[in-house]
Nucleic acid binder design. Structure first.
Length: 326
DNA sequence: CTAAAAGA
DNA sequence: TCTTTTAGG
């Protein structure tokens, strides 16, 4: 499984919010929202965040509660959304990924069958991010004047690209894939209470004395979201054989192994679909009244659920201004 | 995600 | 003994 394997390879260090204050973070919106959706629903009844029409709106609560974390630490978030589904539909790679995720979810749901609480949690997990969730999230962010970027395909790839270009100081994501998309610095655990965790691409490469391309090759041998790894190869041996043979192709040839669509997957990491067509103002001037109305009236969220969040947004924004780069 | 089993 | 895989909370 790619995630755990990549973690063992990555150069991670704990940083303080003070150290990263004043920077721009390109947040993988899907990843960030997904995290809130699953954790928020986890310890409360999902009924609470569902409108009469049956629309799930826990994402709105998540945004209101999550944004202050950025503002209070003088971080400017830029939310990067995944690209259109239509474009992805034709993509074999994306299809493969979707199938794999679906399978995992079914497996998990089946495993947890019998436990009502867990079943509900799994249900929330399986629905992924619906159109409504994406749209209402965009609208709320817009009311709060938080910059949004539309990625042509993977939000992670776009966010990583922006960080590589220097348009963002960090990528914000819990995923380790950002390393494979070439993100120089990734901040993890921006939502939880403790300090953020910094993942450093160059330090990762130095640690193993490998190139960026070799890191991608190593990850592919272990398995990524887009391909099954080679059985019997974990992070240790992957590093060993890639350094031994130079690149993925030589390793596969030497072992007589094969990875389906290897060239496409590799290319997808090294040169993913991204766009330069974005721009944002880091001066954030939220219309809290409009945002509150949108959340509590249009979407019928209990005002008490978001009261503190909005208060914190008002306080943090008026105090720091967040207008350094106007 | 952690811990224990299996495999090399 | 070290690495990978699988099971379980």
């Amino acid at each position: 499984m790619g995630n755990a394997d990549l973690r063992t390879l990555a150069a991670l260090s704990e940083v303080s919010f003070e150290e990263v204050a004043g920077s721009v973070v390109a947040v993988d919106a899907h990843n960030w929202l997904y995290r809130y959706l699953t954790t928020t629903v986890k310890w409360t009844s999902s009924e609470k965040y569902t409108t009469d029409a049956g629309e799930e709106v826990a994402n709105l609560v998540g945004i209101v509660q999550g944004l202050p974390k950025f503002f209070e630490h003088d971080l400017t978030p830029v939310f990067v959304f995944d690209g259109g589904v239509t474009e992805m539909k034709d993509d074999e790679v994306a299809k493969r990924r979707e199938q794999r995720e679906k399978a995992e979810e079914r497996l998990e749901a089946a495993r947890e069958a019998g436990d009502a609480v867990e079943a509900a949690r799994m249900e929330a997990r399986t629905q992924r991010l619906t159109e409504t969730i994406q749209d209402t999230s965009r609208e709320l962010l817009s009311l709060l004047d938080v910059p949004v970027v539309e990625a042509p395909a993977e939000g992670e790839a776009q966010a990583s690209y922006m960080a590589r270009k220097g348009d963002a100081d960090y990528v914000g994501s819990e995923d380790y894939d950002t390393l494979l998309f070439g993100a120089p610095y990734t901040l993890r655990q921006l939502t939880s209470k403790g300090n953020p965790e910094l993942m450093d691409l160059d330090a990762t490469l130095d640690r193993h004395d490998i190139t960026y391309e070799q890191l991608v090759d190593i990850a592919m041998l272990c398995g990524t979201d887009f391909n099954e790894g080679i059985t019997g190869i974990g992070p240790k041996t992957a590093v060993k054989v890639v350094k031994e043979h130079g690149d993925l192709w030589s390793v596969l040839e030497a072992r007589g192994d094969t990875i389906p669509n290897a060239d496409r997957v590799r290319e997808f990491f090294l040169d993913p679909p991204v766009t330069d067509d974005y721009g944002y103002d880091t001066h954030i001037d939220p219309d809290v009244a409009a945002a509150r109305e949108f959340v509590t009236e249009t979407w019928e969220v209990d005002p008490e659920e978001v009261r503190r969040g909005f208060e914190r947004i008002e306080e943090s924004v008026t105090q720091t201004g967040l207008d350094r780069w106007t």
